[in-house]
Computed example of a mutant assay.
Amino acid sequence: MNLATATEPAAISSMGSLVGYGRVSTRDQILDRQTAALTDAGCIRVFADKLSGKNTDRPELAACLDYLRAGDTLVVLSLDRLARSLQDLITIVADLRRREIGFRSLHEALDTTTPGGRLVFHVFAALAEFIRELIVEGTHEGLAAARARGQRLGRPPALTPEQVTHARHMLTAPDATVSSVAKLLGVSRSTIYKYVPELTGADVTAAGTR
């Protein structure tokens, strides 16, 4: 992926309006400081949420992003007021870029309407991609090491080999049914059929299917 073209913000006209967004993590915290700073920065309107950054449902942020138009600039007091993670930040700002909307963070002095700000954002995007690749590589190496040790990966089997043998033995009883055996083993009827495939076809009737 070419990060320079895929995620780096293009030059944005500064002819539009400045629109602010603020957030506090609890309803007891006060938004006045953020609102005042954003207003002083020239924002004509400020949207604000009183929610944890981990909360994916941020109605005022959604309203803010919907309000913005091409040429506008979204302004926040600091990066952590907007995004839950670096990847979240990259996603939001990249979407703003596609809509020809700028982004400015007052605390970090980041402004994607300037060449320097676009360069910083490009570094952020490259760092996010690097971290993602490290995580993927580490996961693959961990899985390979586990396989080399003979460790079973994925979900554990519903029935152990001993339980399968026990199920087969119980099903030979004249009054045994698949349902009764499944209930005793704490599994579903379909699990019994999966682990005792010889029950399919004509053998199902012989073993009992109730």
Rank of each mutant, 00 (worst) to 15 (best):
A146M: 01
A36L: 11
S190C: 09
N55K: 08
A148T: 13
G102W: 06
L86V: 15
S25T: 12
Y67F: 14
D32Q: 12
A146R: 11
G138K: 15
G16A: 03
H107E: 15
D80L: 06
L134G: 13
G42L: 00
A206E: 13
T205M: 02
R98G: 10
A126V: 09
F130G: 10
S179N: 13
A41H: 04
I92L: 14
A176Q: 01
A167E: 02
L119A: 15
L110I: 15
L199A: 00
S52C: 00
A148V: 00
R99C: 03
A182W: 07
Q34C: 04
F121C: 01
A146D: 01
G42C: 04
V75C: 02
M170H: 08
R168M: 11
R189I: 08
D57K: 14
L3P: 08
R98M: 12
T191R: 02
A173I: 04
T139Q: 15
R104H: 13
G71N: 06
L89P: 00
R210G: 01
L159A: 07
C64T: 09
F121E: 09
S52F: 03
R97L: 05
A11T: 12
I192D: 00
H140S: 12
F121D: 03
G201Q: 05
A182F: 02
R132E: 10
L184M: 11
L106F: 09
P197I: 07
A202G: 10
L96P: 04
G71T: 09
G102S: 09
S179I: 11
A202F: 09
G186D: 04
G102H: 09
L3C: 07
G186S: 03
L89Q: 10
L38F: 02
T205R: 08
A158T: 14
R97S: 15
V19F: 03
E137Q: 14
S180R: 13
S17A: 14
P156R: 15
Y21A: 04
S105C: 04
I90L: 13
R84T: 05
L143D: 10
L184C: 10
L159R: 10
H140Y: 11
A109W: 07
S190T: 14
A83M: 05
L77K: 14
S105L: 00
L89V: 07
A70Y: 09
A202N: 13
S78Y: 08
A10D: 14
H169D: 15
R97W: 12
C43H: 05
K194R: 15
N2Y: 06
R132F: 04
L3H: 12
R99E: 01
V75T: 06
T113M: 05
R168V: 10
A173R: 13
A202W: 12
T191I: 08
A148W: 02
R189D: 11
I101Q: 05
Y21F: 08
R33D: 13
